[in-house]
Design a protein around this nucleic acid. Structure first.
Lengths: 217, 217, 217, 217
DNA sequence: AATGAATGAGGGTTCATTCAT
DNA sequence: TATGAATGAACCCTCATTCAT
């Protein structure tokens, strides 16, 4: 499993790398916190500035607009949230060698996304919230999904369907159930449930079993 | 009116009954629209008043505060969204007569909640959004769930588990998968997917099959 | 000279009539003062509000924008500053009866405009200043001039030129010298010179003589 | 260089000579443009810096204050706008030799000032604008006028009045009409009228004739 | 009860000015 | 000397809320 390392190489913490000045990092960090706690509309640049230990004007020097501040926080997420590398490396592994199981695929996917969600909780909360109101976010999300994920995902599903491991539904429906189950499980686990109540292994095993059984032929 | 508890009698449209003056209804209707479109924080009482065709002052005569207006919109939802009657009537039917299947239970649940979601789309959008920020909503939701739903739900799950129709997990976990699957399916179906793309029957059948298989022993 | 009264009927004080609320009048009055003293760009809505004894928000309730406040001050001026009635009544008098002299024409014009300038000094200062920067003001001014003044003025000039009282220049040039002399004289008299240094009668006589001699055949 | 006072030697382009560093020249040039286009109050040091291709801080290193930048632009104008040399050289010529006519005097004056106005249009626009708001500019202007111009001008007017070429008004009034006619003519010609509509010679001849006739005995 | 003018605190944003580099 | 990031006061404007009518 030499390719497995790839997954771990995805920079999971967003907005903390890049060549940002220290003040910019502070501002981003603070903005993420405040946006996440109060929502974009209810957050005030004044509070963000205070929490960042920075003058309010400094925010606007770097991010001309409150909206642009939001965008510069949310946009980088899209390239990470859908984690193309997970699919890419997996697909290569499976199609080249043919030994990976559907369960293995799900396990990697869930594990990886759980880790990602844990590390970027406030960011994800912002994203989910604003997707409801900002059309550009929805559009961008769809585009990234269609361009980078959908094709590979479909190929993988088709592969296992042809092998007789999956129910005879359209690939789109199957994908929909997989994703919505994973997403809702993650939200439940990470956002709603009391922390540590359910240990990760058990949670992952259950979710995998639920999906596999649910989609078995 | 002995049948008042009947599923079909649940008033599905919220905030339009009760003893409200015409102006109050207009205000609530308008507030729901605006809150739903822009989010609570970004909505202005001025816009709500204009869309309702009343003076801005009139809003505050009835709902002392913008926040209280939100609350008086969202709170009644809790007693409906969790639809105790569905469970209650179902439980009575099953335990009294013993003839209903797990699939029948799911079918009624999903059908009913799909209908409800369709009829109260804007309201639900508001609720979901604000649950993220207003702790009191989360608390109230949990309380209503614990007091009215959880017990009956657990009994029903236990019943089918004892009959050997369900996987041998803790009831809580099973409930979690059922609810999160239904919720995420509904959100996908009602909010995200292009309308009419998937006909209701096929959608319901698939979802039921997915859950049943996923939770089969 | 029954028509002469018309001239006196021109409402010379601008922005104080109309159906304005008391607060609106206060705001306009205050805005005129502040704009006139500091210029539009350097004037702050805060200062205008304070001087008007009104909350800053009240300004924006009536005039959505600082710019619109300026416009609603300046625009009405255009219809008055060029005082079509002066020309109209004069033209009628002259062409109907034929007894008025070029000197009489000038005298009425200057007297009337002097009075107007005196009564609307701050307004005129604002107008002159902003004409330099706001293209829409220049355009509007030109349009009003072309549509209401130019034609009548030209007819009058032509009439006296034909009578041999005026130099044989193009009407446009003659009009230019008359207007620029009157304007510059008024500015000098009203804005620059120490008040009362030169009594009005002497000033008017001199200016008339200067123009008449300057444009004599 | 005995001829240094010669009219032709007056440096007509302001603020480009002196011992200024290249950066200073760039800043001044840029500031003149921006002040002229937007007005002093509406001009931002940021825009000036950008247009000059220097850092914003550099402006304040040379001109401690935005106001001082304005002053250092406007002040040198006073010594040029009133062009003492015109009068001085003219006066010498006339009184020493006695051959120059009033018309010749006017012609030199107008021609010279027209040229000057053309070359320093943006500067003059700034000056005129700010004279309305900055008392110190008005004071300085008056002082320069009194100290350098008024006396010589009066002598010249007196000379021609004594020769019987001018109307029998007070010298001050005569000066006023000459200056205000020239100024308003120049403004009309240089700022308002479509360029080249009136050729210079015709314009100058007309203006001279207008003034001479207007002030003829 | 209903209105809508008025309020003023707070919103996002701009900008002259400072200062460490 | 020149820079440009940083500042924070002030700017224009919005908005929930009040209150006289």
């Amino acid at each position: 499993m030499t390719e497995k390392d790839n997954i771990d190489d995805i920079p999971e913490l967003i907005n903390v790398d890049e060549n940002l000045t220290p003040k910019q990092k502070l501002i981003l960090q603070s903005a993420i916190e405040v946006f996440s706690e109060k929502g974009y509309a209810a957050a005030s640049t004044n509070e963000i500035a205070k929490k960042a230990g920075v003058a309010e004007g400094t925010i606007f020097r770097h991010y001309a607009t409150k909206k642009k501040l939001l965008i510069s926080i949310v946009m980088p997420l899209f390239s990470h949230i859908l984690a193309p590398t997970v699919l890419k490396s997996f697909k290569r592994e499976v199609f080249d060698n043919g030994y990976e199981s559907f369960e293995g695929f799900l396990r990697v996917l869930i594990k990886n996304r759980l880790e990602f969600a844990r590390k970027n909780l406030p960011l994800l909360k912002i994203l989910i919230q604003e997707m409801a109101f900002q059309e550009e976010f929805r559009d961008r999300f769809q585009k990234v999904f269609r361009d980078n994920i959908y094709g590979k995902f479909k190929d993988i599903i088709k592969y296992y369907k042809d092998k007789g491991e999956l129910v005879d539904w359209e690939e789109d429906d199957i994908i929909r159930y997989i994703i919505s189950t994973i997403v809702s499980s993650l939200i439940t686990k990470v956002l709603i449930m009391p922390p540590k109540e359910l240990d990760d292994e058990k949670f992952i095993d259950q979710t995998i079993r639920f999906i596999i059984s649910g989609l078995k032929k």
